[in-house]
Simulated assay, not measured.
Amino acid sequence: MNQRIVAGIDGTTESVAASHWAAREALLRGAPLHLVHAEEWSAPPAIPAAGSDVRRRWTEALLHEARDELREEHPELEITTESIDGRPADSLVGVAASAGMLVLGSRGLGTLTGFFLGSVGMAVIQATERPVVLVRAAADATPHIHARHMDRDMVVGVDISRPCDALLAFAFDEASRRACTLRALHSWMLPPLVGSGSAYNPEVNAEITQSLNTGLDNMLKPWREKYPTVDMDAQVTSGHASQQLLETGSEAGLIVVGRRIRRSSIGAHIGPITHAILHHSTAPVAVIAHE
Rank of each mutant, 00 (worst) to 15 (best):
A96L: 08
G121R: 01
E78I: 09
V133S: 05
D68K: 05
A123Y: 03
E129W: 10
V124L: 05
A99W: 12
V132R: 13
L109Q: 15
V103P: 11
S83H: 08
R57Q: 15
S91F: 09
A61G: 11
A137K: 11
A137I: 06
I125G: 06
V133I: 15
S52M: 13
S52D: 09
A99Q: 12
V54L: 15
A66G: 08
A139M: 12
V95R: 15
L77E: 04
S119A: 14
S106K: 01
P88Q: 04
D68P: 00
S98Q: 07
T113H: 11
R136V: 02
A139F: 11
H64Y: 06
V95N: 04
G94H: 13
P75G: 06
V95D: 03
V132A: 08
G105Y: 07
L92A: 05
G121K: 04
I84G: 01
P75V: 11
T59P: 00
D90H: 12
L134V: 12
A89T: 11
E60N: 02
S52N: 04
F115R: 03
S98P: 00
D140G: 12
A141V: 06
W58M: 08
L62V: 02
H74S: 13
L63D: 04
A66F: 00
F116R: 01
G51D: 02
T80F: 03
I125N: 10
D90Y: 08
D68A: 13
G114A: 07
D53P: 01
R136G: 00
A123L: 10
V93E: 03
S106N: 02
G121Q: 03
R87A: 12
A96M: 09
F115W: 01
I125W: 04
T128I: 06
G108T: 10
E69D: 13
E76M: 08
R136S: 01
L104W: 02
F115A: 07
M122D: 06
V135H: 09
H64P: 00
D53K: 13
L112P: 01
V132Q: 11
D140Y: 12
A66I: 00
H64F: 08
G121A: 05
E78R: 12
R136D: 00
T111Q: 13
R136C: 00
M101R: 14
S83D: 02
T111H: 12
A61W: 04
G100T: 07
A141L: 02
F115M: 09
L63F: 08
Q126S: 14
V124A: 10
V135I: 15
G100N: 13
